[in-house]
Amino acid sequence: MTTSITVVDAGPLSLVQDLGRPGFAHLGVGASGALDRGALRLANRLVGNPEGAPGIEVTLGGLRLRVGDPIWFAVTGAWGPVLLDGRRISLDDARRAASGSVIEFGTAEHGLRYYLAVRGGLKTDVVLGSSSTDTLSGLGPAALAAGDVLGVGDTATAPIPALDPLTLWAPTDGAVDIQAHPAPRADGFTPAAVAAFFEEEWSVSADSNRIGLRLTGPVLARRGDDELPSEGMLAGSVQVPPSGQPTVLLADHPVTGGYPVIAVVTDASLDAFAQLRPGQKVRFRHAR
């Protein structure tokens, strides 16, 4: 009999995510996948799964699950109260939930997105090789809703490891330094705008999501107002619309865009955007 987990309450936004479906941009399909890839990889390692096994990305909290047969699970990413049968548990650690147990995610206190991995991975619909939910295109499983039943797979490939204290990590509440390269279109901005991008401090806008993270700060002026042809976009591209306020494209970004790109965030810095909260500060630094 297949082990299952029932969604009692889905919270604001809970999505099935793996490491995405790269390689289909020529078909107009973005990669999607977990915003905090490191957190998903860690959660899977803690329960003996391959790093890319499907898990749940929980935005802010509110998810409540009821377990069928006993499972092992781990929660990483954001820090906050996660309860097992009403008792707060430690994060970044494998835990066993008995049959009928309830796992509940309280509001994140640090960071924004939790990641839940279950030993064996989740059994979900696979689209173009991935179980990820793309909120822009609608590909992949729908956002979780109360009453959904999730199957647990058999993809575990290793025993549950002993806890490594070096894996313990909490998202910062302070300013975050992000490594970025100037983009080919940076010459379309005034020298003062390029300097301001790398020298000023930016604030995370509440008007952000998995498609893009908007920033507020000084207006980045262009040299002219000529329209650009639509171009291919990468996750980490920093577009600047007519408002002069930059947007960092994230996992569910469109594969093309017409706004000029002033910089591109390094792949190693991308995961940090998953945990940035509204009002938090960002400083861009020249990648070495």
Rank of each mutant, 00 (worst) to 15 (best):
R185M: 15
P229V: 14
L19S: 04
A98L: 11
R95E: 01
A183D: 04
D267I: 01
L35E: 08
L215C: 08
G28M: 03
S269V: 02
P161H: 05
S131I: 00
P54D: 06
D125G: 13
R64D: 02
Q239G: 05
A74P: 01
D164W: 09
L228V: 07
P70T: 11
G129V: 12
V152I: 15
S269F: 02
H253W: 11
V248A: 11
L112Q: 10
A158G: 04
L116I: 02
S99H: 12
V7W: 00
T266R: 05
I262P: 09
A146I: 00
L63G: 02
S269M: 06
A117P: 02
H253E: 09
V240M: 05
G86S: 08
T59G: 01
E200C: 04
P70A: 09
R214M: 07
D187M: 09
A142H: 04
L91D: 01
G11V: 06
I89V: 15
V261N: 06
A162H: 12
R185I: 01
G279H: 03
D18Y: 10
L60R: 03
L40P: 10
G86A: 12
E227V: 10
A180E: 04
G232R: 13
Q17T: 03
A78G: 02
L84S: 11
V149E: 14
T3I: 10
L112M: 14
G188M: 09
I5Q: 00
I71L: 00
V282W: 01
D207T: 15
T59S: 15
D85W: 10
S137L: 15
A25H: 04
A162I: 02
H110I: 03
S32G: 04
P159D: 13
R88C: 10
M233E: 08
T124A: 15
P50D: 12
S237V: 10
D92G: 12
I178P: 01
V58A: 06
T135P: 03
D85H: 09
D164A: 13
W72S: 11
Y114S: 06
V47M: 01
R113W: 13
T216K: 14
G106N: 09
S130H: 10
S4Y: 00
G28L: 05
A25N: 03
L228N: 10
F284D: 08
Y114N: 07
I103C: 02
D267F: 01
V127A: 10
L220S: 08
P159M: 08
F284N: 07
D9Y: 01
S131Q: 07
L220Q: 12
P22G: 07
G77N: 05
A78V: 10
D125L: 14
G188N: 04
L46D: 01
F105A: 12
G77V: 13
T190C: 05
D173K: 14
R95T: 07
T6K: 14
A274D: 05
I178E: 07
Q239K: 09
T172A: 14
A196N: 07
G48A: 09
I160C: 03
V261C: 07
R37Q: 14
G147H: 11
L116D: 08
R96W: 06
V261G: 00
L122I: 12
A78Q: 08
A158T: 10
A25R: 14
S132R: 00
A195S: 13
L19N: 11
D207H: 11
S99Y: 00
D9G: 06
T190N: 13
R210E: 11
V16E: 06
V29I: 15
K281Q: 12
A251Q: 13
S208F: 05
R45T: 12
